[in-house]
Design a protein around this nucleic acid. Structure first.
Length: 824
DNA sequence: TGTAAGCGGGG
DNA sequence: GTGTACGCTTACA
């Protein structure tokens, strides 16, 4: 018979001389099951001029003792095969062994004979998926029969054939989020000493019905329908297990559940003798309780465990503004919702002495689970799209950094290209690679000033398009045929083949092509008013992956490492931006700025049409997929000088479009630790200047100064926020924010690293830190105007006015204006 | 100025 | 798990 299903989670086992892949998934009828199929472990060896007869004999007799394994490691067969390694087609043997763990054992032995072994460290499940082109999360077909004697928690299907059907993904997955609260008197997390006090679960069943629950083991009066009391911690864990087995989530999610919640649950369960055999095969919850918490992984066979934090840290965080990946910060940015505010330091005391106070903590606990659930739901599209491109289990994908994602994608494509993967570096080679460096992008030093009529061009996907257009990669480097014609500009000892398109640039080009198709689809779907979230997630996934190829080629741990390729890519990029600048000048344009792939051109007495003509001319000679795009036209742009000297600051400018939209880059005063007064004034002033109202900008600033000095600025505009980054007593210098933190501690509040303190600098004499006060204690007007003027307001705007010819003294009205307010 | 340790997340 | 293994900041010689 034939079944259609979506694969979610994978494992393998060895039984009676055969290794079976287990695929846990859901059928299109929404039923969970396990599909098993035999698959043989193997790796490759290079057969240069070896005596193959002798080698075959040796392999046949080879047997390596293997402790803790089902049997001694043996070779079970071999077959010759032609494959390409780093651009050269050569003869290899595919060597089969008796079980997956025999691969490293046997290959190590063969390597000691001086024979090169390849693909000996590719995970068995990954190997199976790639060789059979099976993509997790997508519609798949299996042919075989059900085994009525399944010893699993789900039906067992024995497959003769498993094959992909389409890229359709499961329509409804049951997600359950988990979050725990633990007893903690000190800051240190101690699995052994401190019990779990409550466990929150939030999810939705297949009908979309909300499920919410907080389990806890102390009674108190309350009116919440989601709280369930149990007798003790043992029962808490027991009930957690019952709920999981009853709810049967397809996806179990958590926030840092790999490193905290699940390891903690497992540790306590082991200590209290609760068996957490939650796996579909009755295997135990697997979680590391020791070692580096950041690198831990937790899993339940048959259930897809997704730690949202891991996905954010490794992959999604790049396009978030926040640089903290705490649940609070990430939820706020993605969901617009924050954690509930409770004092966790008081939880242990509340637990011991004031049970009625526990209700707030239960609400807090549930809310964390709810946030996690919503984050998982929101990010699931993105996780699935990476799964589909890379072709590996979602669990594995979210644990990968970009280098590994790129490599996994290349490895998948290597199967169809009949390419053998180069080995990972080890020992000396690794050390050597780590020392190799390469020059980055070119940034033009702007002349400080206010400019008008700026046209911004950018090279679309610069690095990927250079790699594909110039055939850059380890296989095409230093070929025999193109020494004269394939030279890299400014790096002439390097050349790349101009004859055949090689593997790496081919793979990347394919990625770029599917994105181009996708972009069209998105446009069409949008025109029809259709939901494009999934397509956009896919497009984003492909773009980020494509953009990572360049970094991958220069990454020391890469199989397809090629520092020359990375160097050539940036050399080409620098050359393109420079020659394009020169060409703009030839066309009579003045260039005011350029950075990596961006080019800022002044129209001067020319028209937008002239600029388009220039663009067309540039594009006419650009090779391959390279393209210069017109990004935008800005009516005004401001470039300021560095603080320490008069040179133009790089990566720091403000632009305004015809529609009045501002684009501000790099002005570091726009930071969370600046007061609202500084932020708002800076923005107002910038806008006025860019809108060509320089006198008004000046008068606005001066009236703000006047208000400030007169004590009329509202206190909420003067609050300064600074983060406490370490334990208070480890600060050697007592800055104002540390002084404030101590004040708060004296009042019984707890200030832990990571928390932000707020303060206002008040009037008076002496040290600034002694005059820092908690905002609620400050009376209106009781602020140190001079401090705010010189430490907040002026630093935010002085570099801006300096460009226009106004010194600080002039801003303060101490000197007459000598500035020119000139245009360039 | 260079290398080692330590943190991130979580209560 | 056919093991690894990130990247930045801070501490100290």
């Amino acid at each position: 018979m034939e079944i259609k299903f979506y694969p979610l989670d994978f494992t393998y086992q060895y039984k009676d001389g055969t290794t079976y892949i287990s695929i846990y998934g859901k059928t299109i009828q929404n039923e969970s099951l396990c599909i098993v199929q035999p698959y043989r472990p193997f790796f490759y060896i290079k057969i240069d001029n070896l005596d193959t007869k002798k080698l075959a004999e040796k392999l046949k007799d080879l047997q390596v003792e293997a402790k803790y394994n089902p049997e001694n490691a043996k070779v079970t067969g071999h077959e010759p095969i032609e494959k390409e390694l780093l651009g050269k087609t050569q003869l290899f043997w595919k060597v089969y062994v008796n079980y997956p763990k025999a691969v490293p054992i046997i290959s190590r032995e063969i390597a000691s004979w001086g024979i090169e072994c390849y693909e000996k460290d590719i995970l068995f499940v990954h190997r199976y998926l790639r060789d059979n082109n099976i993509v997790p999360m997508t519609l798949t077909k299996a042919v075989g029969k059900f085994n009525s004697k399944s010893s699993l928690r789900v039906p067992l299907f024995e497959a003769e054939k498993v094959q992909p059907l389409s890229l359709d993904t499961p329509p409804n997955l049951k997600i359950l989020a988990v979050d725990i609260e633990t007893y903690a008197k000190e800051k240190i997390i101690n699995f052994d000493k401190n019990p779990i006090l409550m466990i929150a679960l939030y999810g939705a069943d297949e009908n979309g019905k909300e499920f919410k629950k907080v389990l806890t083991w102390k009674n108190f009066s309350h009116d919440s329908d989601f709280i369930e009391f149990v007798s003790d911690e043992t029962q808490l864990l027991q009930q957690f297990k019952e709920i999981l087995l009853h709810f049967k989530p397809d996806i179990l999610t958590g926030y840092f559940s790999d490193g905290f919640d699940l390891p903690y649950i497992l540790y306590r369960a082991n200590k209290l003798g609760v068996k957490l055999d939650l796996g579909a095969d009755y295997s135990n919850l697997q979680a590391d309780t020791r070692g580096d918490a950041q690198e831990r992984e937790a899993s339940i066979t048959g259930t897809l465990h997704l730690d949202v934090f891991k996905f954010v840290r490794n992959i999604f965080g790049k396009n978030l503004k926040t640089d903290s990946y705490s649940l609070d910060a990430v939820s706020e940015e993605i969901l617009g919702d924050k954690k509930k505010v409770v004092n966790l330091d008081l939880l242990a005391d509340t637990w011991d002495n004031n049970v009625d106070g526990l209700h707030d903590y239960c609400i807090y606990n549930l809310h964390d689970a709810h946030l996690t659930y919503r984050l998982c739901l929101k990010l699931l599209y993105d996780m699935i799209e990476f799964t589909k491109i890379v072709g590996l289990p979602t669990f594995d994908v979210i644990h990968m950094r970009f280098s590994k994602l790129v490599e996994s994608y290349i490895l998948k494509r290597a199967v169809e290209y009949n390419v053998i993967a180069p080995n990972k570096p080890a020992g000396k080679e690794m050390d050597q690679r780590m020392e190799e460096t390469f020059e980055g992008a070119f940034v033009y030093e702007p002349i400080p000033g206010l400019y008008k009529d700026i046209v911004v061009f950018d090279f679309r996907s610069l690095y990927p398009s250079i790699i594909t257009s110039h055939n850059i990669g380890p296989e095409s480097f230093s070929c025999d045929c193109c020494k004269e014609v394939g030279k890299v500009p400014t790096l002439e000892q390097y050349w790349f083949c101009t004859q055949d398109k090689k593997f790496i640039p081919n793979v990347l080009e394919h990625l770029i092509n599917i994105r181009a198709v996708l972009k069209k689809e998105i446009k069409e779907a949008k025109a029809k008013g259709e939901n494009t979230l999934m397509l956009e997630a896919r497009s984003w996934a492909i773009k980020t992956l494509a953009n990572s190829f360049y970094g991958y080629l220069g990454f020391f741990g890469a199989r397809w490492y090629s520092i020359e390729s990375a160097r050539a890519t940036t050399a080409y990029a620098r050359n393109y931006i420079r020659t394009t600048m020169a060409k703009a000048e030839e066309h009579g344009f003045k260039v005011c700025y350029g950075d990596t792939d961006l080019l800022f051109v002044l129209l001067g007495d020319k028209t937008l049409n002239d600029a388009l003509k220039f663009q067309k001319e540039v594009n006419a000679v650009l090779p391959g997929t390279m393209e210069l795009e017109l990004e935008n036209y800005f009516t005004r742009g401001l470039f300021v000088a560095n603080k320490s000297n008069t040179k133009g600051a790089k990566k720091k400018y403000a632009l305004i479009s015809k529609e009045g939209k501002m684009k501000i880059t790099g002005f570091e005063m726009i930071r969370s630790n600046s007061s609202l007064l500084a932020k708002k004034t800076q923005e107002k002033v910038l806008r006025l200047i860019l809108e060509d109202h320089i006198p008004e900008a000046l008068s606005t600033l001066q009236s703000e100064i006047k208000k400030l000095l007169a004590g009329e600025v509202p206190l909420d505009q003067l609050i300064i926020r600074t983060q406490i980054t370490k334990e208070l007593n480890s600060y050697s210098a007592i800055a104002p924010h540390v002084a404030i933190a101590w004040q708060m501690v004296k009042r019984g509040e707890v200030v832990s690293p990571g928390s932000t303190v707020e303060y206002i600098i008040t009037k008076g004499k002496g040290l600034v830190r002694d005059r820092a006060k908690i905002p609620v204690d400050v009376k209106a007007g009781d602020y140190d105007a001079e401090y705010y003027l010189h430490n907040q307001l002026l630093p935010a705007v002085s570099s801006i006015f300096l460009v226009l010819g106004y010194s600080e003294e002039q801003l303060l009205g101490e000197k007459k204006q000598t500035g020119l307010g000139k245009f360039f």
